[in-house]
């Protein structure tokens, strides 16, 4: 596993995402509720681009007719067939053990720490005073 600097923290607004190429993998990084999550940018079903997914709430119901939302923005709803996934671990709602999106560890670190290395960021200028999103692949 190598650590890749993929974005400055300020570059991805809350509720937004950024698609990055890491070692030939299309990875999408989401920024939700103050945290960052990195997932393979492909739905495990038919390959839809998850950067276009709706960021929705976890939807549950104690009984028919009642809709309860929690963890607003932390679930992905695939832009094609509507499958839901948990951004934190890529697990699908309907079969969390068997059907999931590959997810990657993410960290946010200050530029001054990063200058000590090791990290991979051939094309990415790192400034001491900024924070950066690091994805481990």
């Amino acid at each position: 596993m190598a650590r890749h600097i993929v974005a400055s923290a300020s570059e991805i607004p809350p509720g937004g995402n950024k698609v990055v190429d890491v070692d030939g993998r299309d990875i999408v990084v989401f920024h939700v509720n103050g945290e960052f999550f990195a997932l393979l940018n492909r739905c495990p079903h038919e390959g839809a681009p998850l950067e276009k997914a709706a960021c929705v709430a976890r939807l549950t119901s104690p009984e028919p007719g009642i809709y309860q939302r929690s963890r607003v923005g932390e679930m992905l709803r695939c832009p094609w067939h509507g499958w839901e996934f948990d951004m934190r671990n890529g697990q699908s709602w309907f079969d969390p053990k068997r059907v999931k999106i590959r997810s990657y560890p993410v960290a946010v670190e200050r530029g001054e720490e990063l200058q000590k290395g090791p990290y991979v960021a051939e094309t990415f200028p790192v400034h001491v005073e900024d924070s950066y999103v690091i994805v481990e692949v």
Partner: peptide, 15 residues
């Protein structure tokens, strides 16, 4: 169909 549209009927929690 349930996998994709279950948000309409979240009280149905099993396939």
């Amino acid at each position: 169909t349930w996998r994709g549209v279950r948000v309409e009927v979240p009280w149905v929690e099993r396939e």
